[in-house]
Design a binder for these strands. Structure first.
Lengths: 190, 190
DNA sequence: TTTCGACTATAATACGGAATTAGTCTAAAT
DNA sequence: ATTTAGACTAATTCCGTATTATAGTCGAAA
């Protein structure tokens, strides 16, 4: 029954969002999902497995949003701009959602690391493709694509950091300004 | 007696570097500095005061190193490049030195916040001056200086983050590549 | 003015028993 | 066969308390 699995996920998601992973007990999830505790063990191996599934779902949605964003835009520049913009906005939303977990991240949950790794590869591949497309279309100067991608991701890291203390609006403005500088540079043009 | 103060600082600095602020006791510092514990209270108001002084001294040295770096370089571009390079290298050194403290930073030590604020202003002022100089010398395109400075500091934050998992050499290379992109951009030139 | 040992109040720690909790198992219901 | 649940267990967390460690004070001596 997939509907049962869904109920567990929904209940767990709400509780975890409110209280964090550790503070949410299997009994609470079971009660909220209106079923016996051991029933959940028929659908999930253990507590971590439930959380892993929740993270996986969110991660899928996030990937999808990013893919949509670059499909909507036209030029490589626009695609990169929209990618970064969407990434920042939705990540802030997600991190806001998972705020109760921030502390628990310290305790190494393997699948967090795994999701991070997956996302790193995803992002790298998208950005590489966009930079390469830009070079082919003679929009970007021929350059070491890996280096450029790396610098963009480092810049994104900086944006991410500054986003902790920032409202959504400023974050979007900063993202645009950063990408703009990476595109055009600040030196005078010949 | 300034020599006593020095002895306290030296002893405290070594112990704190090795064990962290919390794990270092006033008794240990006193023993290492070869004096009675309460003697130290003649020279310092309390334990935090000793640490604040240590941080202040290190911070002064750091500022000095940065000032030297930009004096040695010639063009605004070079000065910015050297500034970032020096900043990353010495900050890595410092953070390596204070590695035992990383965890304790979480507990809000007011003077850490204060030093951070001071440094933020220092960095802002230096970068603003350099960008303005570059614009005056027609090296940089006329632009919103505050925005450019902000983007550089955000990029530096990203570099800082990636420096945690990186060796000095890569850090230096990344710094150069980042600044290079900020100068030149990646779009083709007309 | 400078130094120190003795002292105190407070904060960290250690510990043991009680309560929770993740996960299992058996058996009943569908 | 599949699904559910309540009782059960082993492990962990929690909690009150007794003990220790520690930052900071004080008065006296050098």
């Amino acid at each position: 029954m997939d509907e049962k699995k869904e109920r567990i996920i929904v209940a767990a998601k709400e509780l975890i969002a409110q209280f964090g992973f550790k503070k949410t007990t299997m009994d609470e999830i079971a009660t909220k999902a209106r079923m016996g505790k051991s029933t959940m063990y028929y659908y999930f191996k253990n507590k971590e497995d439930i959380f892993a599934e929740i993270v996986r779902i969110d991660s899928d949605i996030f990937h999808q949003k990013l893919n949509e964003a670059i499909q909507v835009a036209n030029s490589p520049q626009d695609k990169i701009m929209q990618y970064v913009r969407t990434r920042m906005l939705h990540l802030k939303e997600l991190s806001n959602y998972y705020k109760t977990l921030t502390h628990e991240y310290l305790d190494h949950y393997f699948f967090i690391e795994q999701v991070r790794e997956e996302f790193y590869n995803f992002e790298n591949s998208i950005l590489s493709d966009l930079i390469n497309a830009g070079i082919e279309q003679k929009l970007f100067a021929p350059c070491d694509v890996d280096v450029v991608v790396r610098m963009i991701t480092i810049a994104i890291k900086g944006l991410e950091y500054s986003s902790f203390t920032q409202k959504e609006q400023d974050l979007e403005r900063d993202s645009k300004q950063m990408i703009d500088i990476i595109f055009k540079g600040i030196e005078v043009r010949a």
